[in-house]
């Protein structure tokens, strides 16, 4: 709030400033209060939305996490029971395992591809705008249900992926029905949407001063060396941002797993990602207390991973400002 108010006052005509300078000590206060009130009023739809649709449900879900609640009964306080059953539940463990695998494999692959393509597109060449748009497009449509269906058919028996693989003598069959392969089908879907981090990388690459490369080239540094010693450190803040965003995003995977598995999160729980299990427990089995506890565990896990990433940035993220 503070800076915003200053900005408004600075932009006021000088005439008014001088005129109101004298009675400022008396007249300011009610005026500012009124301005604040106006600000809050303008924000009121958002505040109401936040309180009713975000904060309220969050507090309620925190309470439900410690209760036995099936949507129909009055929630019964059970302390940490939901959490202890969770740790003993093999399907919960399975969902953690599947999600971790998805995050650990999918996120780095996606970012590597995004960075690679961004570096290719950073050079000026003909049709650049077209390529950027083309690579970005999957990020816009990738989360849709219809793409999930397309994915399902691409990775079925005797569909294009199966045929290509078989052509090279590697017979796996469709990935969709195969418990060992289906997760990679989801990984492929997220990697395909590398356009969003790519655009951010592109912006980061544009910020690297040309002189650095010129100087390095003069000193005889090859392309790899330039990438390692100039590009990577200079874009490390952008890289950090992308890692953070994509990791958090990956943890929340739901739609693609739900659609590709036709709502079963199978076969054999192979696509039972965390949110999918949460959904099954909450909305199919009506174990809302358990589902709420699961949701809070997810929040804690994501917060923990974020904290670790933030802690690690001292070691590898370079901010130009620090050097000054």
């Amino acid at each position: 709030m503070g800076p915003a108010v200053t900005l408004v006052e600075d932009s006021l005509p000088t005439a008014r400033k001088t005129r109101s300078a004298a009675p400022a000590t008396r007249g300011r206060r009610p005026g500012r209060r009124r301005e604040n009130l106006a600000g809050y009023l303008f924000m009121s739809p958002w505040i109401a939305g936040f309180l009713l649709l975000t904060a309220g449900p969050m507090i309620a879900s925190l309470y439900f996490a410690f209760t036995d609640y099936n949507l129909f009964n009055t929630p019964k306080w059970v302390g940490f029971d939901n959490f202890t059953t969770m740790f003993d539940d093999p399907r919960w463990q399975r969902s953690v395992e599947v999600t971790a695998k998805y995050v650990v494999i999918g996120t780095p692959l996606k970012l590597l591809l995004a960075l690679g393509v961004a570096m290719l597109l950073a050079q000026s060449r003909r049709g650049q705008a077209f390529y950027r748009a083309a690579f970005y497009a999957p990020s816009l449509i990738g989360a849709s249900v219809s793409v999930g269906f397309v994915w399902r058919s691409l990775f079925s028996d005797d569909a294009i992926v199966d045929r290509t693989q078989s052509f090279f003598g590697w017979h796996v069959g469709g990935w969709v029905g195969n418990a060992d392969w289906v997760l990679y089908c989801l990984v492929a879907l997220t990697v395909w949407q590398f356009g969003a981090p790519m655009v951010i990388f592109l912006a980061g690459l544009k910020q690297v001063p040309r002189e650095l490369y010129e100087a390095a080239e003069m000193d005889g540094a090859g392309p790899l060396r330039r990438f390692w010693n100039i590009t990577l450190p200079m874009i490390s803040p952008v890289l950090f941002f992308n890692v953070l965003l994509e990791t958090i995003h990956s943890f929340q995977i739901f739609g693609s797993a739900y659609v590709v598995s036709n709502g079963t999160c199978g076969p054999a729980d192979a696509t039972l990602v965390y949110t999918c299990y949460l959904y099954q427990q909450g909305f199919q089995n009506a174990r809302m207390g358990f589902a709420a506890a699961m949701a809070w565990m997810l929040l804690l896990a994501v917060a923990l991973v974020t904290a670790v990433l933030f802690w690690s940035q001292k070691k590898w993220v370079y901010y130009e400002e620090d050097a000054r």
Binding site: S156, D157, G173, G174, V176, G177, N178, A179, N262, T264, G266, P267, A268
Partner: peptide, 10 residues
């Protein structure tokens, strides 16, 4: 084979 059943579904 349940792999096939899963793919045929629904």
């Amino acid at each position: 084979d349940p792999k096939v059943v899963a793919q045929d579904f629904p």
